[in-house]
């Protein structure tokens, strides 16, 4: 799934490790989400979105999700 995490991180000058620490996950998971290899759970997606003060839909692109 496409996300805006990388851009948001750069905008907020956050490293992957720092973001991971804040949202309670690991750097590897953030890398995987950014590389579209892993889809975050609803809870993690919510934590990431709230960390940037945004909604889940604003951070994660659901347009390519199949019904």
């Amino acid at each position: 799934m496409k996300t805006k995490i990388k851009e948001l991180r750069k905008k907020h000058k956050l490293s992957q490790a720092e973001l991971a620490f804040e949202v309670g996950t690991t750097r590897q998971t953030i890398t995987s989400i950014e590389c579209e290899k892993y889809t975050a759970s609803l809870v993690l997606a919510y934590k990431i979105a709230s960390h940037f003060g945004m909604t889940i839909e604003e951070v994660f692109d659901f347009s390519e999700v199949e019904d």
């Binding site: 620490f21 309670g24 996950t25 690991t26 590897q28 998971t29 995987s32 975050a40 993690l44």
Partner: peptide
């Protein structure tokens, strides 16, 4: 402690 917690409760690792 927080890093340990994050490592152990990481959802990708759990999957």
């Amino acid at each position: 402690l927080k890093l340990f917690y994050n490592q152990e409760n990481d959802e990708r690792k759990k999957v």
